[in-house]
Design a protein around this nucleic acid. Structure first.
Length: 418
RNA sequence: GUGGGCGUAGCUCAGCUGGUAGAGCACUCGGUUGUGGUCCGAGAUGUCGCGGGUUCGAGCCCCGUCGUUCACCCCA
């Protein structure tokens, strides 16, 4: 009797071999620039106290109000699977007193995040991101470097068909003044109820609407950029100046909208042109009030999150994925059961000598084992039996051309390093 | 949460106007004694997503459901 199969939960994205090799590669390309810029790893829990996101991300955001996986644990605590990375990093920085040391605190992280949305191309309920945060210094040069690090990650992937959009959301006072005028403007529009309701939660959302009639209606809307204080404008122009010096091209998007409430000042987004509706491959910005909201010192911060899933889709779309070799140096075939122990010993010795080695397991015929060796892509194959055990040397067959060389089992480097 | 497309072997798919399933690839074994890739031969595999309905009869029609996919919303 066959039992029913169990499927993965809806919308999760998982990576199995051989695809996982590409995933691993993409993740490393995206994060390596941060590592070489002095950012250090932070491993964080995937679930947190629900209050962290309510307070950090903002109750009115879609993410918090309708996309979180929230449940009660056995102790009656409200727990939420992290929908984004920054709030958790801030919590850990405060809790671990990292903000008492030298500033800025510079950390990176990678892992899965969870949002209960309807799955779509490039949008999953469990998705993967890498990100960095730099906390405690408000310097436009830092903003520029953070952006440059993200940009370098995408360049590492060989991507070309993407653009960097950047804007400044200014400080709280500027946003409040702009909001009043924007609400007034929107009030004069003839909108359907759903859209009106959305605009009351966050009027900026209408700038992001994809429907032509809304885009049209928003043409004359007041722009936040025109409300910025001198300080914010000066800060922003320095950031763009540094980007110019770094030869990083960008477009200033005065209508950019971000879904998380904590962003202030410099805000940016990387958008890829081949990905359909879910085109954002990364985004981030400054969040100058967040630490304080979470009970820490009033320190500024800036960071980004890059979507690994989408970056991988982009690399596939642009055909920039390198072939990911996965093969051992040596494939060892024991002749019969009585040679298995010897094969395991030999494999261990080969690994100790610095080479990767696999053993043929099971009851296959020699021919079958050779086929297995071939498919594994191993560079060399060694068949071992009585003769080898007695002599202490093996024939290493080079699979690329079929030639073989005899070598002592303790001196594999004489052949394998060629 | 709303709307459209799709759901046939491990994969990609075929299956004509309804008559209870096929191809290619992949996989396993073999082509005799301790050596792969090509070639040849043989073989295994499907409750046609699931449930109900129409019919003498359904993979093909209808309804529901689940899954998947694309878009809206939102966003990585």
């Amino acid at each position: 009797m066959k039992l029913e199969k169990i499927a993965a939960p809806k919308g999760v994205r998982e990576y199995l071999p051989p695809e996982s090799r590409s995933f691993e590669w993409v993740r490393e390309q995206l994060i390596s620039p941060a590592k070489s810029a002095g950012y250090q790893l932070m491993e964080l829990p995937v679930f947190e106290d629900t209050t962290l996101f309510n307070r950090g991300v903002g109750e009115t955001t879609d993410v918090v109000s309708k996309e979180m996986y929230t449940f009660e644990d056995r102790g009656g605590r409200s727990i939420t699977l992290r929908p984004e990375g920054t709030a958790g990093v801030m919590r850990a920085v405060i809790e671990g007193n990292l903000d008492r040391g030298q500033l800025p605190v510079k950390v990176w992280y990678a892992g899965q995040f969870f949002r209960a949305e309807r799955p779509q191309a490039g949008r999953y309920r469990q998705f993967y991101q890498v990100g960095i945060e730099a906390i405690g210094v408000d310097d436009p040069a830092l903003d520029a470097e953070v952006i440059a690090i993200a940009n370098q990650g995408f360049k590492n992937l060989g991507l070309k068909r993407y653009r960097l959009e950047i804007t400044s959301l200014g400080d709280a006072a500027s946003r409040a003044a702009h909001r009043v005028d924007l609400m007034k403007f929107i009030g004069g529009l003839n909108l359907d109820d759903a859209t009106k309701a959305r605009s009351e939660i966050n009027p900026l959302r209408l700038f992001d609407d994809k429907r032509p009639e809304i885009i049209d209606a928003m043409q004359g809307a007041p722009l936040l950029m025109d409300y910025l204080s001198d300080y914010s404008l000066d800060h922003f122009s320095k950031v763009t100046g540094y980007l110019d010096d770094l030869n990083i091209s960008y477009v200033v998007n005065k209508r950019m909208v971000r879904g998380l409430d904590y962003y202030t000042g410099t805000t940016f987004e990387f958008v890829h042109s081949d990905l359909g509706a879910q085109s954002g491959i990364g985004g981030g910005g400054r969040y100058d009030g967040l630490m304080e909201v979470l009970g820490g010192q009033p320190l500024s911060g800036i960071g980004f999150g890059l979507g690994i899933d989408r970056a991988l889709l982009a690399a596939i779309a642009e055909n920039t994925l390198p072939i990911q070799e996965f093969s051992s140096d040596l494939f060892i075939i024991p002749l019969g059961d009585e040679m298995k122990s010897f094969a395991l010993t030999f494999a261990a010795s080969a690994r100790k000598q610095g080479f990767s080695a696999e053993v043929a397991f099971g009851e296959r015929s020699l021919k079958g084992a050779m086929k297995g060796a071939d498919k594994s892509g191993a560079r060399f194959v060694a068949v071992i039996g009585e003769t080898e055990r007695e002599s202490g040397s093996v024939e290493l067959k080079r699979m690329s051309d079929g030639t073989s060389i005899s070598v002592k089992m303790s001196e594999l480097n004489k052949v394998l390093e060629l």
